[in-house]
Design a protein around this nucleic acid. Structure first.
Lengths: 110, 110
DNA sequence: TCCATGTGCAACCTTAGAGTTGCACATCCG
DNA sequence: CGGATGTGCAACTCTAAGGTTGCACATGGA
């Protein structure tokens, strides 16, 4: 799971890749050429981004004739969301414990 | 919220920063010098990472005498986790709709 | 007061990655 | 078949980010 999270976080760090994901999700399917039309970057740049997203498990690609269609894949994103939520909850628990300990010490000081 | 998510994703993309967050969370409080002792990088590198984490809202720092203590702050992480979970759910809905449409078309073709 | 400890600041090095361009290769269609 | 369209591959540029080092500036304690 750590590998998945690592890949997803690395992939989502780039705003352009998030934009690409939004586009692909909105269209259901999309090719690198089509996506490049709607962005201020070249097709090759889009291809590289899609490769990163693919190795992170965020998209999958299918060859249809001479074109390659990309679609979104929610599993890795879901895994990462759960990891993050768990981490946040863990932090909350630790902070609550620390606060409690501080209050106890405070009372003892009086 | 987009700003928060952007900052958090950028900050969490680096493995060293995730390690730092783990350390800070585990200790409750920690200084840059202390953290640097347990990592193969210099104090200055740690300071830079903590600055990134701070501007992402993932940690907060307090000056105590001549030292600066860092602590974890869950809000931004929680916000990002929710954003991500919502996005994953959105993708799921879209994919389900597409699948349904495909099956309907399949039936109609017979 | 003097020294040790902990930070802050600034200059510098190095590399990963975001982006580009050019061209070759495959596939569809008139 | 031959041209148009869509990809793949490779070399190249450029900037930002991670990391280091050196030194100056505070603060606590003997």
């Amino acid at each position: 799971m750590a590998d998945v999270v690592d890949g997803v976080l690395g992939a989502l760090a780039d705003p352009t890749r998030r934009e690409l994901l939004d586009q692909v999700a909105a269209r259901g399917q999309a090719t690198a050429s089509t996506l490049a039309d709607g962005l201020p970057i070249s097709r090759q740049a889009v291809v590289k981004h899609l490769a990163v997203l693919d190795s992170a498990g965020l998209v999958e690609c299918t060859k249809v004739g001479r074109e390659v269609r990309y679609a979104v894949r929610p599993e890795a994103l879901d895994t990462t969301a759960r990891w993050m939520a768990t981490l946040a909850a863990d932090w909350d628990r630790r902070l609550a414990r620390i606060k409690r300990a501080a209050e106890t010490a405070e009372r003892a000081a009086h």
